[in-house]
Nucleic acid binder design. Structure first.
Lengths: 335, 335
DNA sequence: TCTGGTATCGATACCGGTATCGGTACCAGA
DNA sequence: TCTGGTACCGATACCGGTATCGATACCAGA
């Protein structure tokens, strides 16, 4: 297993200097057609593959964009990544993903690792990094984007939505639909800062309307259909009188739907169920639940655009922050 | 924005040579306690972050492991990645993810990109790469693992399950449960090679039992609850007489459940619904569907183990291939 | 014929680390 | 006192590319 061929070998085979070979392969100027031809053929022949380590070290720039999300099993982030991948493609940049598992210490480690590869930009999830992480990011000398959430101070670039507002807006919409006896069900709230913010906004808006949550149920586990179902079943069994439940996300809400169905409740008539995210799988459920459509893909593509822009020129504060106002879909409750 | 501090600056501040600084930071031998101390402090003070580009170029090895999957929105792959991340962690290696979108040309591009970073190992999904991709992988001089599928020729290392057998086994199990009037519903079969293999095995086993698929329905779109629901509704409306539907995966199957419920069919009594993967969300559904539990996480952790092993020493053919036999869960139909 | 401009190349010096190997200093044992 | 071993350190040569700048060849125009 001899080591991979280098540029010098390509050059030798093509009968030119490595500088000319380098230029030819990059499609740079100052190389004759004839030589470009020869170099390309030589490269092909010996199966040359650029060594990006050397390229990047030498040129002092990489085509890497670091992206850190808290989880992959959550479709939401998978879609954000898809949005990033798609719109990053033509720029010649390459995204590198890291997963923090909602752990800010892990996140710090990943940030360090990523920066050690000298990416030309980095995207992290949320506004809440540890002070150490923030210092690392600020000291990196590259554009830094924080996504998903805009409720707080940004480091450099910020693209997302206000989860506090999202909670508020949903509360307002539900009240407007005539609901008044509210409950809340959420999970993993200690890790999911944005879910907490939604809950906060939701409660605030209720309070503004002179209302209170009649029942609240939370669990430390991550959200799942089964958990939503179980928690809802328990809440319903407890006999509290409610006509609407706001969930920390769609997974729990869908589980809630099944619990309601099992309890013989008509959804949304007797019990309005509201989630968050607007995940695609809601379309397939027996009942169209209420939800907030978070612009996940859009966040991915837009943050990429802004980040690439920031690598070219200095942005104005306005350009650095993009706030989306997500759309509320009441589903069958809208009728 | 001056550029990041280098090792030389750390060394200067610590009052030693850069070689000593290098050793100190790596925890290598041949440095006095006193100097380790000084270097660490200096490094901390000026916020030094290793330049992995230089490290890797110089040492001619990286801590990178490339991982290419067809999709992230599919939880299955997200879980495989999670398995890989988890078990790779203590090795000091770092996974780098790429997404091919089920497109082998895209995959080839990603393979090239990844190899250009000189990873010390690479993991790709499935056994079907283009010849060009295979040549690239073989010529890379690093351990190459193909995962998920074992029905075919391997390049180097192979960890997964036989989807043909999975289809066969499910057919056998369903027949044993007394079903005889089978239908099949699948989607994106042109892209999802493994789903095709399952279908193939399924049909083979039916044939062995003297049975045939009574109805088959496929769609080019990717699987979703809604699609499964729609296709199933159409099939049921067509009036064909069936007592069991095998789906290309759990998403479609769950959608099928809702269609069956809407049609007033009792599941699994009147209509047995079988999917594939054993996704977690099945637990939350009103009915426990039949499924095959694919060992996704296990595949991720095991392939990592074998790959790391292969980087240490030469493996025997037996060690290079790991075949899992997935467990069938008939859900409520088991009772 | 001479000058200046354009196209094309290649020698050389890095990029920021690590591998290697040859010192020094110091101490134990002969 | 001399020898050999150990602990520690740094000079130097790379790793595989790219940036830079000067050289060469050739042609048009003066």
């Amino acid at each position: 297993m001899r080591s991979k061929p280098t540029l010098v070998e390509v050059a030798a085979l093509a009968g030119v200097s490595k500088m000319t070979a380098s230029r030819a392969l990059r499609g740079a100027a100052d190389v004759s057609e004839k030589n470009v031809e020869k170099v390309l053929r030589a490269s092909e022949e010996i199966g040359y593959v650029t060594n990006h380590l050397a390229t990047s070290l030498s040129s002092r720039t990489t085509n890497l964009i670091g992206v850190i999300v808290p989880s992959l099993s959550n479709v939401v982030f998978a879609e954000v990544l898809a949005g990033i991948s798609d719109s990053i493609h033509e720029s010649g940049k390459q995204p590198v993903f890291g997963v923090s598992n909602y752990d800010s210490e892990v996140e710090k480690g990943i940030i360090r690792d990523m920066l050690s590869w000298r990416p030309s930009g980095i995207i992290v999830t949320g506004l809440e990094q540890t002070d150490q992480s923030k210092k690392l990011l600020e000291g990196a000398g590259i554009p830094v984007a924080q996504i998903m959430d805009v409720d707080g101070d940004l480091i450099d670039i910020n693209v997302g939505l206000s989860h506090i507002d999202a909670g508020r807006d949903m509360a307002r919409a539900l009240i407007d639909r005539g609901r008044s006896k509210f409950a809340y069900i959420g999970s993993a709230l200690d890790k999911d800062i944005r879910a907490r913010k939604r809950m906060k906004g939701f409660k605030e808006e209720l309070r503004n309307a002179g209302l209170e949550l009649i029942s609240t149920r939370t669990d430390a586990d991550f959200s799942s259909l089964a958990l939503g179902r179980q928690m809802t079943a328990e809440m319903l069994a407890s006999g509290c009188e409610i006509d609407c439940i706001y969930y920390s996300n769609d997974d729990l809400a869908a589980g809630g739907l099944f619990a309601a169905m099992a309890a013989g409740l008509e959804v949304p008539k007797q019990l309005l169920i509201a989630g968050f995210n607007g995940l695609e799988f809601l379309e397939g459920l027996p009942v169209r639940l209420a939800t907030t459509r978070s612009p996940r893909r859009k966040i991915g593509s837009e943050v990429t655009r802004v980040l690439l822009e920031a690598m070219e020129r200095s942005l104005t504060p306005d350009e650095r922050r993009l706030i989306f106002r997500p759309e509320i879909d009441l589903g069958d409750a809208a009728a």
